[in-house]
Amino acid sequence: MNTTISRAITAAVVRGKGAPFTLEEVNIREPEGAEVLVRVVATGMCHTDLIVRDQLYPVPLPLVLGHEGAGVVEAIGPNVTRLAVGDHVVMSYGFCGGCSPCDHGHMSYCKEFFGRNFGGSDADGKCAITDRQGEAVHDHFFAQSSFATYAISTEDSAVKVPKEAPLELLGPLGCGIQTGAGAVINTLGVRPGSRFAALGAGAVGLSAVMAARVAGAAMIIAIDVVPERLALAMELGATHVINASHEDVVERVRELGGGGVDYALESTGRTEVLRQGVDVLAGRGTLGVVGAPPLGHEAAFDVNDLLLGGKSIRGIVEGDSVARDFIPQLVELHRQGRFPFDRLVKFYDFEDINQAAEDSERGLTLKPILRMAR
């Protein structure tokens, strides 16, 4: 039973389009129903946080962002059955659990996905956070809003992980890392001996490179314009790299792959790169699309190339992952040394959140992780 109405926490609040994050003392209510209150240990920063800050996705302000949180369960609602106080969890995306896609195990395509992850409130339109003036601050971003010292999540969206795992490292498994790895393993189903190309070698693309290696791809091509990222890609499992600012991507991939690749993944959100992704496919190849441009952007491709080549284009959300199953699998692969995603991250103190955002946007840091005060 809840003994308090709310507790004081610190949160990074965005109050205007493109405004900096400001650390504020706010209040968060106690968990209700099937909710859990998580003391956030660390949280990743993702490109999606920044495009919402800049209002390329229309989430209401003021708002607490953050959607790659990891922490410890501090309190549970009365309907929680699978989690307990003290459990270590990684928080992932929200879903309703009752629509047709959810019933068939495709939670990342939940009919309420946009509202539950980008709506700025719970399913009833209520916020869990209020500022010092008692005004609501929008939250429930990806069922968590983890740019805060505490976050309300749901039991379905909080994934229990082993206590011996490095909790402060695990938050990005809830979105960016699971997206890249899941696209390769769950969606594309990359086969041993196959040819794979990652168009974009950011955190998502490099996660895909590592997953392609786990899957046994014989050729793994990483494509980017940043030499340091391409060098890291070689260390993480790429067999070839292409600097898109120096080489013709389509021509070079076709040369390396003997006509193209079996699978490709576009993670840049640039429509011209998506076109390259279609063009680098060999016959009956599949392009996965995870990069998100601003809403309303359209891409073009040669219809006859798609048709006569039997090619496929597949949109992918959250790597088609059932987070409760997939995140522990990635934790185990990391423990075995087969999925070293720790190579992608740089830690920042929570109060340095704006520096982390700037470094991410400038391409200096692949995956920032904000550590809360101990």
Rank of each mutant, 00 (worst) to 15 (best):
C96P: 05
C96A: 00
C99K: 14
C99A: 00
S100Y: 11
S100G: 11
S100T: 14
S100C: 15
P101V: 15
C102D: 14
C102N: 10
D103L: 05
G105H: 11
G105S: 08
H106W: 06
Y109H: 07
K111R: 02
E112R: 14
F113V: 10
F114Q: 12
F114N: 12
G115M: 13
N117Q: 14
F118P: 06
F118N: 07
D122A: 14
D122K: 04
D122Q: 05
D122H: 07
A123H: 15
D124K: 13
G125D: 10
K126G: 11
K126F: 13
K126P: 14
C127L: 07
C127R: 12
C127A: 04
R132P: 11
R132N: 12
Q133F: 12
A136Q: 15
V137Q: 07
V137K: 00
D139A: 13
D139T: 14
F141Q: 01
F142K: 01
F142M: 05
A143L: 06
A143P: 01
Q144P: 09
Q144I: 05
S145D: 09
S145E: 07
S146Q: 06
S146P: 15
S146D: 12
F147E: 10
T149H: 01
Y150N: 10
A151P: 10
I152V: 03
I152H: 03
S153I: 00
T154F: 04
T154Q: 11
T154L: 09
E155D: 04
D156C: 07
D156G: 08
D156W: 03
A158K: 01
A158S: 07
V159Q: 06
V161C: 04
P162G: 03
K163E: 10
E164L: 00
E164I: 06
A165L: 01
A165K: 05
P166G: 05
L169G: 02
L170H: 00
G171S: 02
G174K: 02
I177N: 02
I177M: 05
I177A: 03
I177F: 02
Q178W: 05
Q178V: 09
T179M: 03
G182C: 07
G182K: 04
V184R: 09
V184Y: 09
N186F: 06
N186A: 08
T187E: 13
L188T: 10
G189M: 06
R191P: 03
P192M: 14
S194I: 12
S194L: 09
S194H: 08
S194Q: 09
R195K: 15
